[in-house]
């Protein structure tokens, strides 16, 4: 058997993380439980009108859309941070981080493998949250769904890049659950502002056309590129 290439090794490590999670269930389950609890709580903060639609007294439909978009992304943000804090937990239990650091694979491969595993977790959380949101906040999921999925994936890229990088920093401290949000939130602000703004537009009836014309769409893509590349490069120095 020849030595696999960069992509194959990276995917091997991602598959390892997913296999471990399927057995341990100590990352995804808390993320989903957090998501469910917060969404349920938020559902009671907006009063319903007679026709079972969410409304705020005196507020326009756009304002309600802003609030719902904020709810959605705050839930994702903190559910993600709950899970990302555990990114290197499995490596630390028995010192497997040393074994991993000695593997002949570029450090960016280790970063990508962890990021892909985190991306899988956050996508599963979103796949759970989205229908829950539609149901509890009686949203029209039809026309805006495809562009909304695009926005979600674009936010995920930046979120996972920053979350994985700072998880590696936080893993070297004894209070990683506290350190991770402190480190990651400032870097994530532009990504999540873009996510909230674009999601709000879509909830208020926007389409794919209005999405790509929005200024935040370009900002989001730019931040994804910058954060993704920076995180992959800086990861090596964090490990060192």
């Amino acid at each position: 058997m020849g030595e696999p290439g960069f992509v194959a090794k990276t995917l091997l490590l991602t598959r390892k993380d997913l296999r471990i999670e399927m057995r341990a269930r100590d990352t995804l389950v808390p993320m989903l439980a957090f998501t469910f609890a917060v969404t349920l709580l938020l559902a009671f903060t907006l009063p319903t009108t007679g026709d079972n639609e969410r409304a705020i007294a005196g507020a326009s439909a756009t304002t309600v859309a802003d609030v719902l978009a904020g709810f959605f992304w705050i839930t994702i943000l903190f559910a993600g941070l709950v899970g990302f804090a555990r990114t290197f937990e499995t490596e630390q239990a028995e010192g497997a981080i040393d074994s991993l650091l000695l593997v002949p694979l570029d450090r960016s491969g280790l970063f990508l493998a962890k990021a892909l595993a985190n991306l899988t977790f956050i996508v599963i959380v979103e796949a759970f949250l989205l229908p829950l949101f539609v149901l509890l906040f009686t949203l029209d999921a039809g026309p805006g769904l495809v562009p909304l999925v695009l926005v979600i994936l674009l936010v995920d890229v930046g979120f996972v890049a920053v979350g994985t990088l700072f998880a590696s920093v936080a893993a070297q401290t004894s209070s990683r659950e506290l350190i991770l949000p402190v480190l990651a939130l400032p870097a994530l602000i532009p990504v999540f502002i873009a996510g909230v703004d674009l999601t709000s537009d879509l909830i208020a009836g926007g389409s794919f056309g209005t999405l790509v014309e929005a200024g935040w769409f370009g900002v989001l893509i730019a931040f994804d590129v910058i954060l993704g590349i920076t995180a992959a490069l800086v990861f090596e120095f964090v490990l060192e």
């Binding site: 058997m1 030595e3 010192g95």
Partner: peptide, 26 residues
């Protein structure tokens, strides 16, 4: 290198652990 800790993933079997590193080293 084998340090103080086993350097293995506790949720994987011994075979899965070694297969993983075997694949990574070709």
């Amino acid at each position: 290198y084998a340090g103080h800790d086993s350097g293995l993933y506790p949720h994987l079997t011994v075979g899965e652990n070694l297969d993983l590193f075997s694949s990574l080293y070709g």
